[in-house]
Design a protein around this nucleic acid. Sequence first.
DNA 1: TAGCGCTAGTCTCTTTTTGAGACCAACACT
DNA 2: AGTGTTGGTCTCAAAAAGAGACTAGCGCTA
Lengths: 135, 135
Amino acid sequence: MVLSKTSPQLQREEFDITAWDMDNCPVRDVIDRIAGKWSTLLLEALAIRPYRFGELRRLIPDISQRMLTQTLRDLQRDGYIEREVFPTKPPSVEYRMTDLGRSLFEPLSKVLRWAEANHADVKAARERYDASELA
Amino acid sequence: MVLSKTSPQLQREEFDITAWDMDNCPVRDVIDRIAGKWSTLLLEALAIRPYRFGELRRLIPDISQRMLTQTLRDLQRDGYIEREVFPTKPPSVEYRMTDLGRSLFEPLSKVLRWAEANHADVKAARERYDASELA
DNA sequence: TAGCGCTAGTCTCTTTTTGAGACCAACACT
DNA sequence: AGTGTTGGTCTCAAAAAGAGACTAGCGCTA
């Protein structure tokens, strides 16, 4: 509760605000990680089928090996994907989505589809904004 | 289409891949912006009601003024929010969600609610991962 | 058998992004 | 006259991300 002690009346808008509890906010804790530049892209891929490291690299040509490793580990840490090493030579590693990951991807995919459907509107908004900036 | 000319057979997995068209991908173009650290948080606030700049600053104490300005401008540019200046002294500025923003927030809010509902599972997964890392 | 490529990474260095904080101008209130 | 309020911008430091070299063991080929 962040309500100022000097304002005894409960203002509705401030009441809404204080419901958030910034420091222990589940939404921020979870979203901050899946909101990474590459996270949704990788979740989208692994929602289709499991992929090996190198496959993902070829699938997303402009991700650096460094960020691919790191993002995969973050997703694994939060329980969205699993990592399995196969004892081939050289050893290969497969990544696959977990049940938790699939559960997340269900609502997430709706946002992705919204993005596809409304891409034109967003681009139009950008052009309007940029044009009005020339002033 | 990125299929190698040296592999004439259509492999199913590669076919899935090539549907993406990395360079002109609507999903990436739209998601990359709302995936910013502060974007969803601001959308969440402005979905409730319009806010003034300073109110948002107080509402999200750990955002820097610089990033608040920048994120609000990005959201405005993509057409999710509007900015209105009132000729008070000193002038105040109000930000409010547009219809496009509300349209986006509908599926987005489902992800946010998923985050709330599954926060415990994610935290548990993290602890399991961190524990297994000690090896 | 020497050379090359494949695997999934790590390590280092540079560039980009973000954060912290000072500063601004005009007006209201004390 | 001094202080606070508005919504920013500017500069500099810190953190994150990108680019590219490097690793090791094995298979294939010349």
